[in-house]
Simulated assay, not measured.
Amino acid sequence: MGASEWDYYVPYQEDLNAALQQLRRAVFEAGDYYWVNGADWRPQEEREPRPQSLEALWEDELVQEAGTHSILDVFHVVGPDDTPDYNTVEPVTAEEARELLGVDRLTRAHVKDFDVFPRSRWIARCAVLHDDEGKPQEIRFWGHSGD
């Protein structure tokens, strides 16, 4: 199948990890993710219902290998002193925004240029987006995951 690119926008809140966890719950509850055990490639009689919890989802070996091709494939936002690793989200820093886009505060208008921010498969990025007055408005999470 290959990896899938994905992105999400959520209202701004100071705690990026809390925003991520709320988004993950919403995506899971909406069923807006690839469920490998219910996929079309399996015969109808072998397809399984979706799990009832995120924990149950990630207990499945096929999910661990193939992922969900969604925000569910990342588990937490790393702090400024942490090294991003598999299944994490790395925030765009002010230094990155300044160095790569020449701005201190990112807006929706900058999103089209976000390819300049380094990223890796299974490690997502997030950025706080501001309004025209410089007030934080939303958070964009983006990445690519799945096999």
Rank of each mutant, 00 (worst) to 15 (best):
Q22D: 11
S145I: 11
E96I: 08
V27Q: 05
G146K: 08
Q22Y: 02
Y34R: 03
H110V: 03
S53E: 11
Q22T: 14
L57H: 05
A26L: 11
A94F: 06
S70T: 12
R125T: 09
V103F: 14
A109Y: 10
R47M: 09
E45I: 09
Y86E: 11
L101N: 03
V36K: 01
T83K: 10
R125D: 01
S53G: 07
E133N: 13
A19W: 00
F75T: 08
G38Y: 09
E99C: 04
L23C: 06
G67A: 03
R125E: 08
R121T: 13
A39T: 08
N37M: 14
V36T: 11
L23T: 05
C126S: 10
L54H: 04
W6M: 08
R105D: 00
M1P: 03
A39L: 01
E99S: 12
Y9S: 03
W35A: 02
D40A: 14
V10C: 08
Y12F: 15
G2R: 13
F141R: 02
E48I: 08
G146C: 10
D15Q: 12
R42M: 13
E138Q: 15
Y8V: 00
Q22I: 14
R24A: 01
P11R: 06
I123F: 06
T68K: 03
P49A: 13
Q64S: 02
A19S: 15
P43Q: 08
D115Y: 15
F117A: 07
L16W: 04
E133K: 12
S70Q: 09
S4E: 13
Y12N: 07
A94C: 04
R125S: 05
G79S: 05
R98G: 01
V27E: 09
D7P: 00
D82Q: 15
V111F: 12
R47I: 14
V103M: 07
E5Y: 15
S145D: 06
R25C: 06
W41P: 00
N37E: 15
E96P: 02
I123Y: 02
V74F: 01
Q22W: 05
D15C: 11
D131R: 13
A19V: 04
Y12Q: 07
V63N: 01
A30D: 15
P91V: 05
S70C: 07
D7R: 14
G67L: 03
R140I: 15
V111C: 14
V111I: 15
K112E: 15
V116P: 02
S70M: 06
D104L: 14
R108N: 12
D32T: 07
W58A: 03
R24T: 06
T83F: 09
P43G: 06
P49M: 11
S145C: 12
Y86T: 04
Q13I: 11
P49R: 07
D15Y: 14
S53I: 13
A18G: 02
P118I: 08
P84K: 06
G134D: 04
G143M: 11
A56T: 10
H144C: 11
F114M: 09
R105E: 05
Q21K: 12
Q52F: 03
G143L: 06
V63F: 01
W122H: 06
E96C: 01
M1C: 06
